[in-house]
Design a binder for these strands. Structure first.
Lengths: 169, 169, 169, 169
DNA sequence: GATGAATGAGAATTCATTCAT
DNA sequence: GATGAATGAATTCTCATTCAT
């Protein structure tokens, strides 16, 4: 568990979980522009309770995203242990994009890799062309697949750079 | 020139250009959330002057984007008339993404295709990994290239759907 | 003619009339909250032209009302010379209220006598109970009619007071 | 008491009362066009405090008017139970107009009946001819009194119509 | 003399964050 | 520890009035 840090009284711990859960729900629905007050109401706590735990709205968002990230990490681990790596990566890629489509805010707040790129574009299209992102996944996967010893001219961003790109907003 | 419409007094025309120029700069830097006041300050005019010309913040944004769009259209036409279509499309793709990187707001306001996707992700990375988008362009181009008669399983969004996806925000 | 003051060039005089006419139309339709710019547009002149003539929006309103008032004065004179004073006053009263109903702004800007009172209330009712003011006219006329030598306990406001009550807004 | 609803913390309740009191005073003096900022200043709170309680300026106005209305209702009930109906109605009529005179905004926001009519006209005169409305009350009461079996030719507006006329602005 | 462009001074409303209870 | 009340700082937008052309 990411959010636990120090020992908390039982009720405090429960509140913390409720806050994170509410944040996920509210931000997923309304995007990052939802107000802290909305989250507080959904969580059934006062706004001050949230600010006691998370000095800043951004801190709340970050904590919530860390939770979402865990599920992605789990997916990634499953993919890493799969027998068919090609299928596994395809499934992983699609799965993450699907999560992005379902949770606008998670997508908006994530770092800028190609999966995220497809998620962002897919999110825009989802309303008028639902599922359009699947084609983009196909294309990107095809582009990533090794074909005839071709080498890409440009290097990928480092993990650190990818991580830091989350803060760009 | 899009914004000229009727004959304007010399000073008014100058102001109009300053406003548009300031809007481009400010929105490019800070994204669409930048305030009209910021644009006004940069342009050296009062906010009311802006609202006289553009009744709504959205109108201002739209006018500015129209200008950006023109340059993309010009690029597209050049590409269409090139001798080597593969090189032309690569150049076009890169050129548009570069424009996106230089103008966050233009990117944010555009429809959700793969070029846009790369732009959005590249924008996030630009600060910590400048130029990282070039690799993404490579990958997507590779994925788009015909290889061995492969067919994509999913259909692309229609032009209308792409267009409407601009409104998703 | 109220508005003529000094000798004006022919075109200036024409503009002046157009402004007053536009003011009447615009304020009658939209109430006193209509903007000076609206009046200018309707008159086909620049706003500055209006402000050259009328240093203040209030001045414009006042001038326009004076014109409306003239027609009321004409009615009053006709009534004064009629044979049947009772019928004449009834007709006058109704006529003025009708003018008020047709021109919200004239009513709103007039002094506070009983005719005006009926006009103000009638105006509010006109939308949902058109013509309701006619009953109020009846009642007030009945109340004004001499019955059995009764004397009213309170004195009427003086003409000066009535006039000054126009400024209460 | 209308405004109490749920249990409020002592200080909040005190502030709420101060806000309502300030609103009454400010709107009574300056009419409905007074700004919320004026009310806030008078109440000694920030504007945001007002908007927390009343999401809209209209809501604030409505709450305040409800309070005023209560006193009118009380008067009406007293009149209904009086022995001498003629005197009672006269007193009621005068009482309501007096309330109107003391509270411009209440008068402006009320429906368009004859009492309201007298209030509106009286308000305009009050500054230059204080108490002039008393004569108008006399006249209207006289007009309403049954004299010699006379019948009014026009019907009164229905309660619904009167109610809806409040919204005429 | 006429024009319309420019603007300062608001107005309503929102929200992250702090503070008294 | 928790609460929700209070608020300062913004934001979009309007308009009477002044000024350069």
């Amino acid at each position: 568990m990411v959010v636990e840090a120090t020992h908390l009284r039982a009720d405090a711990q429960r509140n913390l979980e409720r806050i994170l859960e509410a944040a996920r729900a509210v931000f997923a629905e309304e995007g990052l522009e939802a107000s802290v007050a909305d989250v507080a109401e959904r969580a059934g706590v006062g706004t001050a309770t949230i600010f006691r735990r998370f000095p800043t709205k951004d801190d709340l968002v970050a904590a919530m995203l860390e939770q979402e990230l865990e599920s992605v990490v789990a997916r990634a681990q499953a993919a890493a242990e799969a027998n068919d790596p090609t299928a596994a990566i395809a499934e992983f890629f699609s799965g993450v994009v699907e999560t992005f489509i379902e949770d606008r805010c998670f997508c908006e707040a994530s770092g800028g890799d190609l999966i995220n790129a497809v998620g962002l574009a897919g999110l825009r299209l989802e309303h008028t062309a639902p599922g359009a992102w699947r084609r983009y996944v196909e294309i990107v996967l095809a582009g990533l697949a090794p074909h005839g010893g071709r080498k890409l001219a440009h290097k990928p961003p480092t993990p650190q750079q990818l991580h830091d790109s989350k803060r760009s907003r």
